[in-house]
């Protein structure tokens, strides 16, 4: 498909997503769209690591969850203004990405993934045990949304998602982005070209962490509460599914994956209480036949002349 046509299609889709739900006027649908946007941003941040830099982190939800808790704690318990809370989130996310960067230095591949999972679970356990600060299992409620209503919120969420997407696209197509893709393919070789791979990986870990933190801020605005469940490794796995289902290494794939998972769970749970089982089977089937994810399906149709040398 020509680039110009692609752009027109994208703009039309964007306009539809912005306008149609407002016309329908259902807050429920608005909240679903907001949720999709939140998980899309989260999934894009994960794809930057997984699909472009080749970093398989099982602790990524730490940023998401901690951001939610920081906002909840600072605004509800300390009565800080919202912008101050956001500032704190940035500080904390940078600190956490520093920790993860150090891990990349010391460990490789499987060991890296295991360590990141351990870090993730550490934060989860802290959230359940430090109940003086975190409210324990029940979580920290009482967060007031900065958006006056769901309509304004969803429009803002869509626009934020578009910005995140464009920013990420810019990043991966930049010279620095190419280096990252080189890191994914062969870390040592990129070093042999004169690139300080640690520096590059640190930067992408930081950016990805901040984006996940942004998703966490939006999450706690929507739900009004931060609970340990968002720090659990099952959350990271959910995001992993979204990215792979939608198409890893594409940036639009994660958005598709997030949308599919949200909508499928809602539609399916309306039919049966066994929807999770069906979803799991469906997921396996899709992966068997479309290993590049849903985005891969469309790619096949748009590039028939691609040279293949398998």
């Amino acid at each position: 498909m020509k680039t110009k046509n692609k752009l027109v299609l994208a703009l039309a889709l964007l306009a539809a997503v912005l306008v149609v739900p407002a016309l329908i006027g259902s807050s429920y649908i608005h909240s679903i769209i907001i949720t999709i946007c939140i998980y899309s941003i989260f999934a894009i941040s994960y794809d930057l690591l997984l699909g472009y830099t080749g970093i398989v982190s099982f602790g990524h939800t730490v940023y998401f969850g901690v951001a939610a808790y920081v906002v909840a704690f600072t605004t509800v318990k300390l009565h800080w203004p919202f912008l101050a809370a956001v500032g704190m989130v940035i500080v904390v996310c940078v600190a956490i990405s520093f920790i993860f960067s150090l891990v990349t230095l010391r460990t490789k591949n499987v060991y890296f993934s295991m360590v990141t999972m351990a870090i993730g679970q550490l934060f989860y356990v802290m959230s359940t045990k430090l109940y003086a600060i975190t409210g324990g299992d029940d979580g920290l409620p009482g967060v007031k949304s900065i958006f006056p209503n769901k309509t304004v919120f969803y429009i803002a969420a869509v626009l934020i998602l578009v910005c995140v997407y464009l920013f990420s696209k810019r990043l991966v197509n930049s010279p620095a982005g190419r280096v990252l893709q080189g890191v994914k393919e062969n870390d040592a070789r990129i070093g042999m070209l004169g690139y300080n791979t640690f520096k590059f990986k640190s930067i992408v870990i930081q950016i990805s962490g901040l984006l996940a933190g942004l998703a966490g801020i939006l999450y706690v605005n929507l739900n009004g509460i931060a609970t340990p469940s968002i720090l659990n490794s099952s959350m990271t796995l959910q995001i992993l599914f979204m990215v792979i289902l939608g198409g890893v290494g594409t940036l639009h794939g994660p958005v598709i994956g997030a949308a599919i998972m949200q909508i499928a769970s809602i539609v399916l749970s309306g039919f049966t209480t066994r929807w999770m089982l069906i979803f799991g089977i469906g997921f396996v089937v899709v992966m068997l036949f479309f290993p590049k994810g849903v985005a891969g399906v469309f790619d096949r149709f748009s590039q028939p002349n691609q040279l293949r040398k398998e």
């Binding site: 040592a188 070093g191 004169g194 690139y195």
Partner: peptide, 8 residues
């Protein structure tokens, strides 16, 4: 020295 410095 680390590889990237030598290369540079």
């Amino acid at each position: 020295l680390p590889a990237y410095e030598i290369i540079q």
